[in-house]
Design a protein around this nucleic acid. Structure first.
Lengths: 112, 112
DNA sequence: AGAGGATGTCATCTTTTTCTGACCTATTGC
DNA sequence: GCAATAGGTCAGAAAAAGATGACATCCTCT
């Protein structure tokens, strides 16, 4: 699947939830989303917080999240170059459902 | 990761939402969940509705969803053998967040 | 001039996920 | 007896996702 197909959900989904689940699934995406939810972050800051990750993987994830319209790059400073990633409007629409997932997990942890 | 680790979320998640996202991500899981949400279904019924899938993939998905405690098998009839898959209690706790994902996707479709 | 941080890319390798064809058991209908 | 339906399993191939080492660019600090 090309990235444009990915963005436009042109795969014949019967299931509406699937395309959204796909946007946030993967090894690092949920964590990056959670961090971005609490404010814009720079590449190196993200990298520090993603224990076990590395810049190459982070690079891929950020690019995908950008292509999906969830994150946007912002140049904080030209010299020296500082860039921040922050949630787009579309990205922000995911916040409630993401928080609900967190609460649900908390509930599951209590029981088991 | 072994299946028991998978179930018990023993991977050192920083992100609570991630383990739940993982439970429903994959090519066929969201669709199977959606179908199961609307009532118990038999293997062959599921197979008919999953356009583009096949029994081997369905078999894998059903087994994983069972291991994750989301689905449970039920023998409807011994002779001839009829089996149904239905959501467990744990599986049912996912319904609200799944529906929210569906609504969110509907909203996104309206705009774009 | 040289070291080091910030922000990446590229090519390659490995691991995980998904797909495919073949095979299996049991039962029913003709 | 033979085909069809129901519910799968197994082994191997292909595709997708993730990890890794090397490299590149621009800037600052000493």
């Amino acid at each position: 699947m090309t990235s444009s197909e990915y963005i436009n959900n042109t795969n014949n989904d019967q299931c509406p939830a699937q395309s959204l689940l796909k946007l946030l699934s993967g090894k690092w995406k949920p964590e990056v989303f959670r961090l971005a939810m609490n404010g814009p972050l720079r590449f190196s800051q993200l990298l520090q917080q993603l224990k076990g990750s590395n810049k190459q993987s982070l690079s891929v994830v950020l690019k995908e999240l950008e292509e999906q319209g969830i994150l946007r790059k912002e140049i904080l400073q030209k010299k020296p170059l500082h860039i921040a990633y922050h949630l787009t409007e579309k990205g922000q629409t995911f916040i409630p459902v993401f928080k609900q997932l967190e609460e649900l997990q908390a509930g599951i942890n209590e029981i088991s």
